[in-house]
Computed example of a mutant assay.
Amino acid sequence: MFFSESLGRTDLSVGYRYNLEPFREIYRCIRYWDVLGPLNASMNLIGNIVAFMPFGFILPMLCLSNRRWYIVFLLGLLCSLCIESLQLVTRRGSFDVDDLMLNTLGSLAGYWCFLIAARFRRQLHKKR
């Protein structure tokens, strides 16, 4: 969202760009790793995942009904869709279906971290 200009995704001189083809941007980052540079390519791929991990970690702590993986999945997808749609409407950043997938994966990764932390916490309290 904030770094798309540095990744060559929003050259407004040729018109607004968006991606509706799954895995297109992911493939581009992997294929042109050397051209984009490891920092920019990994920022796009890993950054989209890491950016949504707190969402998947904190959401189950806020409400007991959000402790099911599919709830975190759907809310992560919805939140990401809202952000991507806002980018499309405002033409700030670049709407990308790959970002939706990576952000949703990040929500699930945060949820898995929550499950690990909860299990560790239960074991710690059980020992006391």
Results as ranks from 00 to 15, higher is better:
Arg121Thr: 09
Gly106Phe: 05
Leu75Glu: 01
Gly8Leu: 03
Gly93Glu: 10
Cys63Met: 14
Ile71Tyr: 09
Phe114Asn: 09
Val89Gly: 00
Met53Phe: 06
Glu25Gly: 06
Phe120Asp: 06
Gly106Ser: 08
Ser85Asn: 06
Leu20Glu: 02
Asp99Lys: 09
Val97Arg: 03
Met1Ala: 14
Leu12Ile: 05
Arg28Ile: 11
Leu7Met: 05
Leu86Phe: 13
Phe3Thr: 11
Glu21Ala: 12
Gln87Val: 02
Leu20Ser: 02
Val72Cys: 02
Cys79Ile: 14
Leu77Trp: 14
Asp34Asn: 14
Cys82Lys: 08
Val89Phe: 12
Tyr18Trp: 07
Leu74Met: 06
Leu12Trp: 07
Thr90Pro: 00
Arg122Leu: 11
Ser6Tyr: 05
Arg128Ser: 05
Tyr16His: 01
Phe114Thr: 05
Asp96Gln: 05
Ala41Gln: 03
Leu36Pro: 00
Glu84Val: 12
Leu105Val: 14
Phe114Lys: 11
Leu81Thr: 04
Leu77Thr: 08
Asn48Pro: 03
Arg28Ser: 12
Ala118Thr: 10
Ala118Trp: 15
Ser107Val: 04
Pro54Tyr: 10
Gly15Asp: 00
Gly93Cys: 03
Pro22His: 10
Leu45Glu: 10
Gln87Asn: 07
Ile26Glu: 00
Ala41Pro: 04
Phe95Asp: 03
Arg91Asp: 01
Thr10Gln: 08
Pro38Asn: 15
His125Gln: 10
Asn19Val: 06
Ser4Leu: 03
Leu20Tyr: 15
Tyr16Asp: 00
Met53Ser: 07
Ser42Met: 15
Leu124Tyr: 14
Leu86Ser: 07
Val14Phe: 08
Asn66Ala: 12
Leu20Lys: 06
Asn44Lys: 02
Trp69Tyr: 11
Asn103Lys: 11
Glu21Pro: 00
Glu25Arg: 08
Val97Glu: 04
Gly110Glu: 12
Ser4Gly: 03
Gly8Lys: 02
Ile58Val: 14
Asp34Ser: 13
Ser13Gln: 07
Phe95Gly: 02
Asp11Gln: 13
Arg31Trp: 13
Arg91Thr: 03
Trp112Ala: 02
Gln87Glu: 01
Lys126Trp: 07
Thr90Tyr: 09
Glu25Ala: 13
